[in-house]
């Protein structure tokens, strides 16, 4: 039996909205540790790793490990039926073929349940080693989203270059070119607006903007985003979910031939 109750049910809706454009079908892995997902996009260029710890839920019970295969798009459609302030409870039997989402309004006057059929999904799992990255940038997530969107009006790829002076996002295209440089700065009163650059050595990598724009769908989940890069390694774009876990996106770089 799997049962998980989340007072802030809207959190799961935001999570689904940040994954469904990249991945169609995926397995949610339920265990005593929590509720997790690892999935690659169909081109095997990017990967989502999402984890919500069991202690972040208001109630969490998972008697045995369970893999729930779902269409992320269909699950997102169901979660759209949940009120913004509703309490969400997910339930699944160990050998069942469905998962139930129960929505309770804050005043308990409306209770609804939606059942989603589960699917058998063969998913290829990748082992991602712990890595000490050459450079890590923490910046406002809305600023990162804006930069990726703005640069997409000019080009398809972005060169992200971290130096001690800041992080520079550059693109070129048929109509011209664009650069945005963000400098590190702290703001004691508004920590969500600070930019922190932790650099062991300068690093510059090129990525397809299309994927970064998909990752930015997670912006409503966190005020800050953390971008980790090392030479010739996939970038990690991580959004921390307060008191619960994170959603991290991995994207393979583009390499000059």
């Amino acid at each position: 039996m799997f049962e998980a109750r989340l007072t802030q049910g809207v959190l799961l809706r935001k999570l689904l909205d940040s994954m469904k454009d990249l991945v169609q079908d995926a397995n949610f892995d339920c265990s005593s540790t929590g509720f997790a997902l690892q999935a690659m996009d169909s081109s095997h260029v990017s990967l989502i790793h999402m984890q919500l710890r069991s202690d972040g839920f208001d109630h969490f019970r998972c008697d045995r490990n369970l893999s729930m295969g779902v269409s992320l798009n269909n699950m997102a459609k169901i979660l759209k039926c949940m009120g913004n302030d509703d309490v969400l409870t997910m339930k699944a039997e160990d050998q069942g073929d469905s998962v139930t989402f129960m929505f309770e309004s804050a005043n308990q006057e409306r209770i609804s349940d939606f059942e989603l059929k589960l699917m058998d999904i063969d998913s290829e799992q990748l082992g991602i080693p712990d890595t000490d990255y050459s450079a890590t940038v923490k910046m406002p997530s809305a600023e990162f989203a804006r930069i990726c969107k703005d640069l997409s009006t000019i080009g398809d790829t972005v060169l992200i270059a971290v130096t001690k002076d800041g992080v520079r996002f550059s693109t070129t295209g048929d109509i011209g070119s664009a650069n945005v440089t963000v400098r590190s700065h702290s703001n004691v009163d508004k920590p969500e607006e600070q930019v922190v650059i932790d650099m062991q050595e300068p690093v510059a990598l090129t990525f397809a903007l299309r994927y970064l724009n998909s990752f930015a769908k997670a912006t409503p989940l966190s005020n800050q985003v953390m971008i980790s890069m090392s030479k010739e390694l996939p970038v990690v774009v991580q959004y921390r979910i307060e008191d619960m876990g994170h959603i991290s996106y991995y994207l393979a770089p583009k390499i000059e031939d």
Partner: peptide, 14 residues
Amino acid sequence: GGRQMGLASFYRGT
């Protein structure tokens, strides 16, 4: 610009 790498070039399957 450049050739798009796949993730399998960097991470092993489990």
